[in-house]
């Protein structure tokens, strides 16, 4: 017998590739250290998750909603440091279009 798949309508979830190991499925997943909302959710000023409310990676390995971080950096108190470790914020190089290994 030969099984020919003519069409397969499947369902998948997208996840941010945070570089961390896949957490257990049932969990809410990791949360943004600034707003405490899961990465795959959206920051308090957004309504749509995903590309409309992207993440930003720091060289310190901390990850936030980009909007959350920008808001933080925009404050005087931030001194342009990462809110988690108080190191100067440097956005990690994650070249668009490059295929992660």
């Amino acid at each position: 017998m030969k099984v020919n798949v003519k069409q397969w309508h499947a369902v998948a979830q997208w996840r941010w590739d945070t570089g961390n190991a896949e957490p257990e499925d049932d969990g809410e997943g990791d949360v943004c250290g600034i707003c405490r909302v899961p990465y795959e959710g959206c920051c308090p000023s957004c309504k749509m998750p995903g590309d409309d409310c992207p993440l930003i990676w720091g060289e310190c390995t901390h990850v936030f909603h980009m909007h959350c971080l920008l808001k933080w950096i925009g404050t005087v108190a931030s001194k342009q440091q990462c809110p988690m470790d108080r190191k100067p914020w440097v956005t990690a190089e994650r070249k668009i279009g490059s295929t992660p290994s």
């Binding site: 017998m1 003519k6 369902v11 998948a12 997208w14 996840r15 070249k95 295929t99 992660p100």
Partner: peptide, 26 residues
Amino acid sequence: FNVFKPDKKLKWLPHLGTVQLELELE
């Protein structure tokens, strides 16, 4: 997908959906 959206990956929910099949038997 990953090529198209490098910062994202897919997690399949394999039990959902439908498959259209053709079985070639003798």
